[in-house]
Deep mutational scan, measured.
Amino acid sequence: RTAFSSEQLARLKREFNENRYLTERRRQQLSSELGLNEAQIKIWFQNKRA
């Protein structure tokens, strides 16, 4: 289980509010910017949509 920092969570929530689905390219960008792997971001979005 991933423990996200408050900064990472704030960024993910802001991104989710703008778009509930990420393109592969956007997921790669977020992964690089947040220091998370793409799978972690993908799962976070899946869980948030559920």
Rank of each mutant, 00 (worst) to 15 (best):
K13N: 15
N19P: 02
E24D: 13
N19F: 05
R1L: 14
F16Y: 10
T2E: 13
S31L: 03
S31V: 07
E24L: 08
R27I: 15
E24I: 11
Q40W: 11
R27L: 15
T2Y: 10
L34Q: 01
E38G: 06
Q46E: 14
L36T: 03
I43A: 12
E33D: 07
E24V: 14
R26N: 05
R26D: 05
S5F: 03
N19L: 04
E15V: 05
Y21V: 11
G35R: 05
Q29C: 06
Y21M: 07
R20L: 03
A10L: 09
R25I: 12
S31F: 03
R14Q: 14
F16E: 01
L34H: 01
R14F: 09
E18Q: 09
R20Q: 13
A39E: 15
Q29F: 07
T23E: 05
K48H: 12
R25G: 11
F4C: 05
K48T: 13
K42L: 14
I41G: 00
A50N: 12
Q8C: 05
Q8I: 11
Q46H: 10
L12C: 03
L9V: 08
K13C: 15
N17Q: 12
A39L: 13
Q28E: 09
S5H: 04
Y21L: 07
R27M: 15
S32I: 14
I43G: 09
K13T: 15
Q29S: 08
T23Y: 02
N19V: 04
Q28L: 10
K42T: 14
R25E: 15
R27Q: 12
Q28P: 01
T23S: 13
A3H: 13
A50V: 09
L12N: 00
S5A: 03
Q29H: 07
S32R: 14
E24H: 11
Q8T: 06
K42I: 14
N47L: 13
R49F: 09
I41C: 03
R25V: 13
R26H: 06
R11Y: 06
L12Y: 00
R26L: 07
L22D: 10
A39G: 09
I43W: 15
Q46F: 09
S5G: 05
T2M: 13
A39Y: 13
N17H: 10
Q28Y: 08
E18W: 06
S31P: 01
N37Q: 11
R25K: 14
L12P: 01
R26S: 05
L36N: 00
T2C: 15
E33L: 06
Q29N: 07
Q29T: 09
E7M: 06
I43Q: 13
S32F: 13
I41S: 01
R20T: 06
Q29G: 04
S32Y: 12
W44H: 02
K42F: 12
S6P: 15
A39N: 13
R49Y: 07
R14A: 14
E15M: 04
A10P: 00
L30P: 00
K13V: 15
I41L: 07
E7C: 08
I41D: 01
K42C: 15
N17A: 14
E18C: 11
E15P: 00
S6F: 10
E15N: 01
S6A: 14
F16T: 01
L30A: 00
F16N: 00
Q29E: 12
N47R: 11
R1E: 15
I43N: 12
R27E: 07
Y21F: 12
Y21K: 05
L9W: 05
R26W: 03
L30M: 04
R25H: 12
T23H: 05
T23I: 02
F45H: 01
F16C: 03
W44C: 03
R49W: 11
S6Q: 13
N19W: 05
L34F: 03
Q29V: 08
K48L: 07
Q46K: 11
N47C: 14
G35L: 05
W44I: 03
R27F: 11
A10V: 07
I43C: 13
A10C: 09
K42N: 13
E7D: 09
E38H: 04
R25W: 08
W44P: 01
F4I: 12
Q46T: 08
N19M: 04
N19Y: 05
R20N: 09
L36Q: 01
A3K: 13
F45V: 01
L36P: 00
S6C: 15
T2P: 14
E38T: 06
S5N: 10
